[in-house]
Amino acid sequence: MSPTTNMLKAVSAAIALTAASVASADVIRIDETAFTPDAGLITFSEYSLGTVNPTYNPADYGGGADAPVVSFGGYFTGQSLGGAGDCPAGAALSGCVIGTPTGPLSLDPSSPNTFITNDGANPTSPVLSGSPTFNGAITILFDTDIAGVGLDGGYFDAIGGTAITAFDRDGNIIGQVTNEGMGIEFLGLVTEDGANAIAGLQFSLVGSEPAGFAIDNLRFGTADQIDVPPVAGVPEPGTLALLGLGLAGFGLSRRKKQA
């Protein structure tokens, strides 16, 4: 096989790989400024302290007629809390969730409760905590799919110990982001292509977090309610097409010279 043929095959494979990455169901990390003013916002001050596993209808948080119903619990059906051999070193077992959710996605009614409480470490308290207080996983279910979601998490005393994980309606993981700092931090993500594909979100431990955690100021929205940032390093479809045409021309030129 000639060097030219090898090169053409290698570059063609690279184009196919790049095209696949453009269509992947990954997520992009975003901050709170990516959400437009008409995106959903739940501050947990809408209900009284002590409310267990709250469910928010659109009217409860000022959402429109097409906005999702948002429900909270400990974990999804098909999951469970991890044991000592399942969870990362230093992670509280009450905040470590294992297993794959079963579809269609639903909250497990037997999972530990979430509840609204005050948090002296969070200036925008009240917050939503898992069980036990500030040491339990928090899981969120949307009754209609959204494109992006984010929340204020903390108070963190370790970097990379806590994550939000997005799931689709069938229980498949779409993507995950972890905390990058300490204190109160906004953790947000959106589907890479801006598709409304997120049915649920889980806030749980993926490492050590000595101070515990809770959530506040949950933001969420469909594709038209989020400014999706461009994906760095991924060529536009037009760039791929031009590269393909260039390869075709290169191959034709080689054949003419050999003739």
Results as ranks from 00 to 15, higher is better:
N6P: 00
S21N: 10
V22W: 06
V22T: 09
S24G: 11
T36K: 15
T36C: 02
P37D: 09
D38F: 04
G40F: 05
F44V: 08
E46D: 13
T51K: 15
Y56S: 11
Y56A: 10
A59H: 11
D60A: 15
D60H: 06
G64M: 06
A67Y: 07
A67V: 04
G74K: 06
Y75S: 05
G78L: 08
L81D: 02
P88Y: 10
A92H: 08
G99V: 08
P101A: 07
L105M: 05
S106E: 14
P112R: 05
F115C: 08
D119C: 12
V127R: 01
G130D: 02
S131V: 04
P132Y: 09
P132F: 07
N135W: 07
T139Q: 03
G148P: 05
V149H: 06
G154T: 11
G161K: 10
A163V: 03
G171A: 11
I173K: 10
Q176S: 14
M182L: 14
M182C: 06
G183Q: 03
E185C: 03
F186D: 00
L187V: 07
A195L: 10
N196I: 06
A199G: 15
L205E: 07
S208P: 00
A211R: 06
G212K: 01
I215T: 08
T222Q: 14
I226C: 07
D227P: 00
V231A: 13
P235K: 12
E236Q: 15
F250A: 15
S253R: 15
R255K: 14
K256G: 00
K257V: 11
